[in-house]
Design a protein around this nucleic acid. Sequence first.
DNA 1: CGCGTTTACGTCGTTCGTAACGATA
DNA 2: TATCGTTACGAACGACGTAAACGCG
Lengths: 326, 326
Amino acid sequence: MTLNQLRYLVAIVDSGLNITLAAEHVHATQPGLSRQIKQLEDELGFLLFTRKGRSLTSLTQAGDHVLVHARRLLDEAGNIRALAANQRGERKGRLTLVTTHTQARYVLPAAIAATRREFPAVSIRLQPSDESEILARLARGGDELAVISTSGAVPNAGVAVPLFRWRRVVLVPSAHKLARRDKPVSLRELSALPLVSYESSRKPESSLRRAFDAAKLPMQLAMTAHDADLIKTYVRAGLGVGILAEMAVSPDDTDLHALPAPEALPECITWAVLPRGRVLRDFTLRLLRELAPQIDSIDVRRVAAGNAEPAWPKPPAWEDLHQLPA
Amino acid sequence: MTLNQLRYLVAIVDSGLNITLAAEHVHATQPGLSRQIKQLEDELGFLLFTRKGRSLTSLTQAGDHVLVHARRLLDEAGNIRALAANQRGERKGRLTLVTTHTQARYVLPAAIAATRREFPAVSIRLQPSDESEILARLARGGDELAVISTSGAVPNAGVAVPLFRWRRVVLVPSAHKLARRDKPVSLRELSALPLVSYESSRKPESSLRRAFDAAKLPMQLAMTAHDADLIKTYVRAGLGVGILAEMAVSPDDTDLHALPAPEALPECITWAVLPRGRVLRDFTLRLLRELAPQIDSIDVRRVAAGNAEPAWPKPPAWEDLHQLPA
DNA sequence: CGCGTTTACGTCGTTCGTAACGATA
DNA sequence: TATCGTTACGAACGACGTAAACGCG
């Protein structure tokens, strides 16, 4: 059993049992992987894969168990390497962060820019992903950091660090009658209007939907999109009233008007989620500090390593974080 | 970075920074270890050890961090090997269990004998250890299983499985006046007598001591020992009244008489403590089943692997477990 | 026939043990 | 001088890549 054999094992699984593809991912040749897997199977004394003819069809049950431990083992190897890179002040590396479109488009750019200014040699890859897939991806390993929002609840995966609080806004074209309102919009008023919002609002557990349900009011979803820009576009087109995150309205949107959402729509929190037990590179911490200045980096390291229980300060409101610089 | 390099690293640390000694432990030569460590240091880019002249004086701070992850990594490698051994029905192996004298002498023999009958090729090593050191040893890894007692509280290390409940007995020579008593002994009566008990009774947190403190009665410890047999010997010699675990009285002790301890002395629980996240060999589970028939082996596997929260049945009383066979 | 896996073969690198050397208390 | 770590050397093994063969759709 060698580190490489285990690396090959997970590479093959992560490549959908295609050894040739896996070989490219690990920068090796296909026969090399085939042989190492066979040797590993010989050593362990049972088959890791079920085979049909010459190709792999699935993991055996035992192989599945081995895989779990192999991933953890390789995680620790990665931790040692990260530790070492930090120790010798290595300033280059890769930072994969998986998040939703709104975060990627409106929240992260400034923070990423600042991080890259300090670590120009770090290659940052942004992995846009569906709400539901993000935490699964993180659990599978490979990604360093997820940024997601919830309506208050702590995400139950990895180590969740609360970054900031934010509210929704009601977005209408400047010509819309609501644009000339000074008193807040009520949920009842919204109920009468066609709404344009995020795809996730379709889910029954969505906090938007739950707010309407709680008030026993119907909700008319005219259309949904994954993407705040699309929502704006359709609001401009007069398709309906936009409901979206306050971070997504920019001063450039002069043809649109944003109103505070009804109180009945709960405040949301944006979280950074780190894989549990992972050693963070310095630049990851740097990015985190940029996103949430109130967080102590030492604490993050301790909690992420599993050496302390989380006790985070209450996250500031997005508005407060971004009023001064604007 | 290879598995061997990390193995050598922990071997050297566990051998007190003596490379020659470590080399014997891992069945390799001393120059081999020296070189591999040097290569590892080269690859990581910093020193793992501080050196004075040619010999190692301590781990560097970074080395200490690496060590933590190296141990976890090797644990996972061990898990894979254990998994494989189970999978192919391997019936030989090693089971190191660390425990106190009373457990080793009076509780474990029957269970170990039964396990060895089923797994004759398994070499079981019993590691007697001080109460306080047991959990530390377990955390350091290497041992598969600890068996310890508490007065109710769940040991806060690894995965604790409650095996059985037991009470203390008051042990006197047959000629002692207490031997002809039929009503229970009170704490007040004991308070007037010189006691012979376990070494651990000297600690302020000992449940024996706390019982006396709670009753505001003085406690006279005539002598203490680690060892139930020694306690019996000194009880025979008339040094005082023995206070010991009910498991430690055997029917052969015809010259001694055991009375139930006062109600004020709380019931104790004997626990099996498993390292968290470890894959258990079949024979380890077999031993556990022998010690605590009420425990479901599948549950133990799940909880030990960290895939479930513990929900153990209430452990039976030692007396009930052993009345029928006796 | 093309895709993907296995088998065959030769090379290169690496690890390891033996043995000699060096430093230290 | 005994103990422990480092350096030197040579042998053996093992991993890897190239190239060709094999099955399956």
